[in-house]
Simulated assay, not measured.
Amino acid sequence: MNTLKTTFLMALLTVMMVMLGGALGGRNGMTLAFVMAAGMNFFSYWFSDKMVLSMYGAHEISERDDPRFYGLVRRLAQRAGLPMPKVYVIDSDTPNAFATGRNPEHAAVAATSGILRILSEEELAGVMAHELAHVKNRDILIQTIAATFAGAITYMAHMAQWGAMFGGRGDDDDGGGMGALVMAILAPLAAMLVQMAISRSREYGADAGGASICGNPLSLANALAKLEMGNRQIPMHANAATAHMFIVNPLTGGGLMTLFSTHPPMQERIARLQEMARMGRS
């Protein structure tokens, strides 16, 4: 179901981008939209992992640097049938972790010094298994493409708004007019909501996959409870564009913020893992 939902949402983003391009510039606008998306996706595919790791000051470690953590990741990767990813540590007291990389052969997992300090061996295994599930499911690439599409839609919508204010109305084939303006206002919001829904869907899938890899859903459930509390006590200065990558949302907020969250409600994630344990599934 998660895969079907993601496929549908990705198709919806594509349709939105084409429609917005068509509203702005007719057939030429649709072509420009596709070219823009292709170029941005190409850049994201090859370089997004290095950019994110650099953004948070992550440094690569070897087994000699941290035998416990590195060895744990290696055992989990073997259980998951994955190549050994590069392992990084971020010097931050906020307990969190993420995975990045365009495919399993070019993957990396990163954990903060805070998470390495507060979690038990079993809980840390649950967290890193979750990240390896993202790698196995190629979620990093899916989420990167979704974010790229949403960003392109927002950029095009801003162009439409400025064009409506200063460029006047165009004919039907060239786009413009009230329809284009309305779409330019609504498209960024809709694209953001779709992007968030994709991210939430992949988080549920990674929770289930991580529980299967580590063999104990409760290890991950207990870790998530600790991480949520830790992120409230020691917030991370995270970039909103990369918040979806972390196992726990580093951007806190209630009310309407939950609607725009890249992560499912923590209580729901924990409840699903507890149900897996109760049913004897891992």
Rank of each mutant, 00 (worst) to 15 (best):
H237V: 11
L119F: 10
M266N: 05
M196A: 15
M245E: 04
N28P: 10
P235N: 06
H130K: 12
P235M: 00
R278T: 08
L9I: 05
G21C: 02
A225H: 11
A221K: 15
G253A: 10
G25W: 02
I115F: 04
L72C: 05
A223K: 04
R232A: 10
G21I: 07
H263V: 01
W162S: 12
T3I: 00
T154V: 07
D172P: 00
E63V: 14
E203S: 03
A191H: 06
T242S: 15
A129Q: 01
D66W: 04
A146C: 14
R75N: 12
M16P: 15
A240V: 15
F246M: 13
I247E: 01
M165T: 11
M229Y: 03
L227W: 09
A107N: 09
S282D: 08
Y88V: 01
A221I: 01
Q195T: 06
A277F: 06
S261L: 03
A238V: 04
N137H: 07
V194E: 05
Y45W: 13
Q195I: 04
A33I: 03
I145N: 14
E122R: 06
P83K: 14
I61K: 12
R117V: 05
M276I: 10
L193Q: 08
G280V: 05
V109H: 04
T31N: 11
A197G: 04
G101V: 03
A58P: 15
T242Y: 15
P95C: 13
A208V: 09
M19E: 12
L186S: 12
V109A: 12
V182T: 09
Y155H: 14
G39A: 07
K86Q: 08
S44P: 03
A152E: 00
